[in-house]
Design a protein around this nucleic acid. Structure first.
Lengths: 189, 189
DNA sequence: CTGATTTGCCTATAGGTATTAGGTAGAAGC
DNA sequence: GCTTCTACCTAATACCTATAGGCAAATCAG
């Protein structure tokens, strides 16, 4: 009777992989149990329930994405930092669509506050520092960046740009340029 | 034995209402059957399956939203039209979160081509006509507007702006202003 | 090193949703 | 009044979530 050595961490990671393969909303306790060749109830020693699993995957993905973005942005400023931020975001979503979808899971306030979501907001603010925005413009700008990036990536993943020219990459670059232009205009410096 | 008079149309409309009440992903054939006080299999005479129901709700919502936007934009141009478009979009999502979520359902190419999604794209292009953009800028701009609006609304509905100042409306207006500014800059006129 | 405890996965079970097959009663048509 | 059709039904299968309780391997105390 070999024990597969289940842990919340291994289950979360496997859940993230599963999400990328079949979609975040197809991640079920059952599918995960099959993947470990284990009976379903065995997972309930490690997970409170299926929502707990989803939350763990979301937190995992938020952290992973934040780390990537931090890495991409390091040592850059201004337009350069903005583009690196944007690309890190888009690339992650394209590489890991299921994990990206997981980051959109609605978390309760407490969980959200303890998550890497906080880091995301801080990094966005850090990039905007280069543009010299005062409050409340900085907050507006953070929200605008979040909206554009999330919106674009989510439309692209949904296949919205597949059947028309120009390619999704050109539009992405055009949009990042536009954001840079707008932020420079809004600057008080 | 009273017959409730089920039809695909009534089921779709009730499904849309249900979506607004409990969330689009909580719309199930079972819940809909309960709402009509009917056994679940009875619905299968009117719906192919649960995905068919979701698609019908999506198409219904796309059309309803397109009609609203068309109405809001009628007789306006430039910044005015842009703001009307934007507000119609956001207001619909706030009033009908479930239906709005339904509009994000991924449709196969054929279904999408026959849907009111086409109208949405045309209206966005119509608004951009006022800004005098040549291709491919016009397409980039359509994608940018779609991204921002969808992204913002989806973050707002997810509660992302609830626990921080300034209010979601101010940011919305700031963003619409910014879009207007960028589009004027991009104009070839 | 041995007996007790804990751990980790198991079986059994119950309830919910999706879907198909096939039955029946009332409405509509001849 | 008889047939046919329609609209909803019961029955049955399959899969997912979740809980309760069991058993054997691993771990720990003396």
């Amino acid at each position: 009777m070999d024990r597969p050595g289940l842990t919340p961490e291994r289950l979360t990671r496997a859940g993230a992989e599963l999400a990328d393969e079949v979609g975040f909303d197809q991640v079920t306790v059952s599918a995960l149990a099959r993947r470990f060749d284990v009976k379903v109830p065995s997972l309930y020693s490690h997970l409170k329930n299926s929502q707990d699993l989803r939350i763990r995957i979301a937190l995992f993905a938020l952290k992973e994405l934040a780390d990537r973005v931090a890495d991409a942005v390091a040592g850059r400023a201004g337009r350069d930092a903005l583009a690196a931020f944007a690309d890190a975001y888009r690339d992650y979503a394209r590489e890991h669509p299921g994990r990206y979808a997981a980051t959109r899971l609605r978390l309760d306030r407490e969980t959200a506050a303890a998550s890497a979501g906080v880091q995301h907001a801080q990094m966005a603010r850090a990039i905007l520092r280069g543009y010299g925005l005062d409050e409340p413009d900085a907050t507006h700008a953070v929200r605008m960046l979040g909206s554009v990036f999330h919106g674009y990536v989510s439309l692209e993943l949904a296949g919205g740009f597949e059947h028309s020219a120009p390619g999704a990459l050109e539009s992405w670059e055009w949009i990042v340029d536009s954001l840079d232009a707008v932020l420079r205009t809004r600057s008080t410096r």
